[in-house]
Simulated assay, not measured.
Amino acid sequence: MTDDAYLFLLDDASARLGVAPAAVGELACMETPAVRAWLDAQGSTPASPHLRLLPPEETAAIPEGAERLPVPLSDEELSRVRHRMAPEPLARVEEELLAYRDCADGWDGLIGRALAAGVAPHRIVELTGVDPATVNAAANR
């Protein structure tokens, strides 16, 4: 596993791998000279349907031989990438977890639903800011 996310180009734009950077919103790395030069060298643009982005824990899925570039993402940018990649049921629960930051009422049920839906405990901690021990206790109930 690497600490960097990766931009990469897919031959088949219809493949469901990674997320289009444009779908994530503004990313600081997209404005860097390194990314702009890489895109120019590939004959691509930030809006290309072939351009995709994967978080560090998913980069092993990049097809062998695909053009790729490691890019640093802020914690907030990385959270948005992960959220866009989540399947719809998980994405809805993740939205609730993000909203949880603003209220503490009913956290027990929400964390239980998130765990039951398959959201990883470390992701719940990342989204809510809840103490990892609290999430682990809920997971062990």
Rank of each mutant, 00 (worst) to 15 (best):
V93C: 10
A23D: 12
G18E: 05
Y6M: 04
L69V: 11
E96R: 09
A61C: 06
P132R: 07
E95A: 14
R141W: 13
P33I: 10
R52S: 02
R113P: 01
T32S: 12
W107M: 07
E57T: 10
P89G: 12
A22W: 01
P55G: 08
D105L: 13
T2S: 12
L98Y: 06
T2F: 04
V135H: 00
R141Y: 05
A99I: 07
T2D: 14
D12N: 12
E57V: 06
T134V: 15
A104M: 11
N140V: 05
E96M: 15
P56D: 04
N140F: 02
Y100S: 14
A23R: 11
M85F: 02
G43W: 01
G18Q: 04
A120Q: 08
A116N: 14
P56Y: 06
D131R: 07
C103E: 15
E95H: 07
R36I: 13
V135S: 04
V135C: 03
G25P: 07
R36T: 14
G129F: 04
P121V: 11
A28S: 12
L7S: 00
P33D: 13
V93E: 09
W38C: 08
L98I: 14
V81T: 05
G118W: 11
L69N: 01
R80K: 05
L110I: 11
L73F: 08
R36H: 11
D131P: 00
G118I: 15
L9R: 00
F8S: 02
D12P: 01
L69Q: 03
L51P: 00
E67N: 11
L39G: 13
S48R: 06
A137Y: 01
A15E: 15
A114I: 14
D131T: 04
A120T: 13
D3Q: 12
L69E: 02
A120D: 10
R80S: 14
A137D: 07
V93A: 07
A41P: 09
E26L: 05
G109R: 15
V130H: 02
L17E: 10
E64C: 07
L78D: 09
L115H: 06
